[in-house]
């Protein structure tokens, strides 16, 4: 049986850890709300933009926009993997990375070259570790992504796609379903699917609209913005998921620490009791020996 002092030290150390995990849990809980608000406030823009896009797309005929051009089978694919910058958030990043690896394997099997665009330190470190070539990387944005961050990513890919340097772009990120549930999700966002921008109930040719400078030029600018908004949305979702996953993980850790403390306390008490009993036995033995 270990000494009481050693047990007491362990209890203290576990208790310290529990304090940290509990704090992290609370911080994450607060951040989930903020992150969710951000997703909410990005929604009006995205909705409105789709609406305008649908109107414009219905109006423009003839030649396809380069971002709508489908090149199959894809010769060169880019996967944008969005992970977090910091750890301690359960399996959130592991799921994303595994998903990415599967997709890489699938694309390669289909005969495509695959490049990775890593967002978040976890993705960057992982792909470096297994020595993948990264097309590009972004870090220090997972906590509070800005639209300009999303834009800087989108611009690169739009440029490459327009020049036909790449044939397909897939986005992998954690979809924030609720604070308790995050789901790794894949979105093929280039080429833009035509039905994504043309709603079923689109009013056909909207002749009554005037487009300035021209319908085609408006479309030329709207489609990239659509991509930017999509990337931005994925980054927001991923940020909210990070906090959700961290809260779950930290709650589990706090609970486990509590359990561990109660087990340790029990053995601490047993050890203390044993020490007392032994002392009494020794005293009794000692007095008896003296009395003889």
């Amino acid at each position: 049986m270990s000494s009481t002092r050693e047990i007491r030290r362990r209890i203290k150390s576990v208790d310290n850890t529990r304090q940290i995990t509990r704090t992290m849990e609370m911080v994450a809980t607060a951040k989930i709300r903020k992150a969710r608000d951000r997703i909410e406030s990005a929604r009006p823009y995205a909705m409105k933009m789709l609406e305008v896009l649908a109107k414009v797309a219905a109006n423009v005929e003839g030649e396809l926009h380069p971002l709508l051009a489908v090149r199959e089978p894809a010769k060169r694919t880019v996967i944008i993997t969005i992970t977090t910058d910091r750890g301690l958030c359960g399996a959130a990043n592991a799921n994303i990375l595994r998903r990415t690896e599967h997709l890489v394997a699938a694309e390669r099997a289909a005969g495509a070259d695959v490049d990775i665009f890593a967002v978040g330190k976890k993705a960057i470190n992982y792909f470096r570790y297994i020595s993948y070539d990264l097309l590009d990387e972004r870090r220090d944005i997972s906590d509070n992504p800005k639209f300009s961050d999303a834009k800087s990513i989108a611009v690169i890919l739009i440029d490459m796609y327009t020049k036909a340097a790449i044939d397909k772009v897939v986005l992998i990120f954690n979809h924030f379903k609720s604070a308790m549930e995050q789901k790794p999700t894949e979105i093929v966002f280039l080429p833009i699917k035509r039905d994504a921008v043309e709603e079923d109930d689109a009013p056909g040719k909207t002749g009554e609209y005037t487009f300035e400078p021209s319908d085609k030029e408006v479309l030329d600018r709207l489609l990239p913005t659509y991509i930017e908004a999509l990337v931005y949305r994925a980054m927001l979702e991923s940020a909210a998921s990070e906090h959700g996953a961290r809260r779950t993980a930290m709650k589990a850790a706090t609970d486990n620490a509590g359990e561990m403390i109660s087990i340790l306390t029990r053995s601490f008490n047993r050890a203390r009791q044993a020490a007392i009993t032994q002392e009494i036995a020794e005293i009794v033995g000692g007095t008896e020996a003296l009395a003889k």
């Binding site: 414009v56 909207t206 609209y209 005037t210 487009f211 300035e212 400078p213």
Partner: peptide
Amino acid sequence: LPLHMPLVTT
């Protein structure tokens, strides 16, 4: 101004 015709512009 109000009563403007429908328009989309950049």
